[in-house]
Nucleic acid binder design. Sequence first.
DNA 1: GACTTAATTAACCAATTGGTTAACTTTATT
DNA 2: AATAAAGTTAACCAATTGGTTAATTAAGTC
Lengths: 205, 205
Amino acid sequence: MVKKDKDQSTEKNILNAAREIFQQKGLAGARMQDIADRAGINKAMLHYYFRTKEKLFEVIFQEALEKFLPRLQIIFGEEGSLFEKIELFVGEYIDLLLDNPQIPMFVLNQISTDPETFFSNNFSGNRQIPFQMMMNVFEKEMEQGNIRVVHPKHLIVNIMSLSVFPFVARPMLQRVMGVTDVQYRKFLTERKQEVINFIIHSLKA
Amino acid sequence: MVKKDKDQSTEKNILNAAREIFQQKGLAGARMQDIADRAGINKAMLHYYFRTKEKLFEVIFQEALEKFLPRLQIIFGEEGSLFEKIELFVGEYIDLLLDNPQIPMFVLNQISTDPETFFSNNFSGNRQIPFQMMMNVFEKEMEQGNIRVVHPKHLIVNIMSLSVFPFVARPMLQRVMGVTDVQYRKFLTERKQEVINFIIHSLKA
DNA sequence: GACTTAATTAACCAATTGGTTAACTTTATT
DNA sequence: AATAAAGTTAACCAATTGGTTAATTAAGTC
């Protein structure tokens, strides 16, 4: 039997619906019935295609994790000055999150809620490698006197914090700032340059 | 009838247990039975003292929100140079979070999951005032040429991001960095000075 | 010490929820 | 067209879960 195309395949319908519900409500808060309703199908189909809620969740979560973990290797393996690398990374990462604004909270909350399951399924150890690579790049630059001496661990966390936090805290920040969705998106877009300047100015000093 | 003190009052036992469970699992993931077990009492007592799960949650959430929202008014209303104010704020805020490391994720996730309930219960509008006050302070300093010109909105979000994100992303960061709980706490303590330096260097430039 | 009120518990209940099943329909294979 | 396989559904089921109740105990009042 070959796949049919009413709207899309049923499987993709399910995944799209599951993505919305899980990302908004989390694993515990999501209801299989809600996912089925959003997908416009019978609840039994969810189990037909994915067996259990946990299995369906795992697909959505892995897909999100994949996007969330920045491809540091690629950018920090490339040519160019350190500042160019930082510029490239922050710009591309914020752009990625602008396309997937719910992912940071979704992923980080799930890990906080159930770290055991997460770490047994993922992180076979090789996740530390890009982190180490990044550390080395920074340390070399400091030895050469190209940037101010800061602890590389903190620098990396600073870069991540400045890029990711505005997405995690969006509802609260948007409210405190008193702006619309569109305005907040604009704010996030501005941040690309703003964060880059902020970091580079701090490192030049 | 006067309160008795076996260990503490039953009500406080419940609140302590509820705090732990809710902060770890969130509203949807928490089980009333788990809270009762942790408090070492019968489940009916939870309803006897707090009527519903939502009411009990609300107490825990408000208490957490209170701690989480930085008392900007106090610090930015005080005397002292801008750099002193930033130093004071970051130092005290990170110290606060070191005592309550689960609060940021707990609060921010709840708001993300159910913003409607949150905004109807809180934020009668006066929450923007400290934000505006902080903006004004920064703008004046820029006019006087004391600091580099950056958009004050971004500066505020930068300060918050650098302070809060390492708590929100703790499980992931700790794993990537490959450190123990004790080492990560030390890292967070170091950050007080590190973040202050990072910000001030960026603004002096 | 009798009596009232508060605190506590075990048992129970109704609703929700993840998951299953058996029948039915559609789609492909020959 | 006959048959097999995959897709889909309504109805059902068992477990979980928030919440209630009636009975019991503890504590304070007179």
